[in-house]
Amino acid sequence: MPTLDLTHPLATGMPVYPGTEPVGVEPDATLDADGYRTTRLDLDSHAGTHVDAPAHLTDGPALDEFPVERFRFDAAAADPRPLDARERVDLDAVRAALTVDPAEVDVVVVVTGWDRHWGDERYFDHPYLAAEAAAWLADHGCDLGVDTVNPDPTPTERAGEGEPDGFPVHERLFDADRLVVENLRGLDRVPDRFELHAHPLRFAGADASPVRALADTGDADSDGNDHGD
């Protein structure tokens, strides 16, 4: 079964949510100096491709309180493109972009194509989901995946008037004990329906964790490659 890697590699200086400590991925021991290799990872729990738990913003469960099967998702892609910077993706757009009933899947991944801006400032001026769309997904028992740093608007100097403050999309989902997978990449390559694996690291009280996000597509990719790094 072909597998697509939807994960941004962890690397020193990679993009992080504004105000978050930078990521460091550096050699700690080397063959020449120590006779073995180790690597030091300095990173926030929300760095890179990661999954958010309700404990991030509420008194809801942390990641370690979910069964491990919870992170293997029957996924559907919703592709409402083309989208402009900081464009609001409303409920009608999500409904129109879906080819399946959201009640039939575990997670809906919204394809914005904004992962193409990974590494530059425009990445933070991504499209964002309307709160009512998030509530609709939660009502259907769906988690959410996005190829942006945030399903809510990310504050930058280019923010527009009328954009919601805070994290209304997160809140609607977390109130229903749903999960949010952020900073996915390559969603333009997934079919309308696929299996998503996004297993977090195991640590107590995890509000979020980096994941290796993989898509089992069930069909051969058009160029015969799995696009892994």
Rank of each mutant, 00 (worst) to 15 (best):
G224N: 00
P22T: 00
D101K: 15
V100A: 10
E65T: 12
G218A: 01
G160N: 10
T99F: 14
A33T: 12
M1L: 05
A85G: 03
G228S: 14
D216Y: 14
P80R: 01
E182F: 09
A208S: 15
P27R: 05
P27A: 00
A134P: 08
E26C: 11
P80H: 13
G162H: 10
E87Y: 09
A159M: 11
V25N: 10
V105P: 13
A103M: 10
A206M: 02
D226A: 05
P18A: 09
A134Y: 12
G145V: 03
G218E: 02
G141H: 07
H170W: 11
R88S: 02
A138L: 07
D59P: 01
R116Q: 02
T156Y: 15
D59R: 03
D84E: 06
L43Y: 14
T49K: 02
W118I: 01
V109I: 12
D219T: 15
F66Y: 15
F203Y: 15
D106L: 00
D42P: 14
R212L: 04
A176L: 06
A47T: 00
L214F: 01
P9Q: 12
P15G: 11
D229C: 02
E104V: 01
P54Q: 04
D177G: 08
H199C: 12
A206G: 14
G24N: 14
E171T: 10
D152E: 00
V111Y: 05
R158M: 12
P153S: 05
A103I: 02
G162S: 06
A135N: 06
P80Q: 04
D216N: 13
A78Y: 11
A75C: 15
L57W: 01
D106E: 02
G145T: 13
P2T: 06
S222E: 08
L63C: 11
R116N: 07
V105Q: 08
G13H: 08
A220N: 07
D64M: 02
F194P: 01
R70M: 09
V16W: 09
H170M: 03
V149T: 09
D143N: 15
S209C: 11
G218Q: 06
V25E: 02
H170G: 07
D84W: 14
D52Y: 15
R178H: 01
T39C: 03
F203V: 04
A97G: 11
Y123I: 06
P82H: 03
L83R: 12
V25C: 08
A76P: 14
A33G: 15
A29I: 08
V51P: 03
S45A: 09
C142K: 04
M14D: 02
A133Q: 00
P22E: 06
L129W: 07
A76C: 12
L98W: 12
P155H: 05
D223A: 07
D219V: 14
P61H: 07
A213I: 11
D143C: 04
H140M: 04
A76D: 02
N225F: 11
D44T: 03
P27T: 06
N150Q: 14
F73T: 09
E87V: 08
D44I: 05
H117R: 13
R193V: 09
E163V: 06
T99V: 14
M14Q: 04
T58K: 04
G60C: 12
L214Y: 04
C142S: 05
L187D: 00
T49P: 09
G162C: 07
D5P: 06
P27L: 08
A77F: 12
D229V: 09
T49I: 00
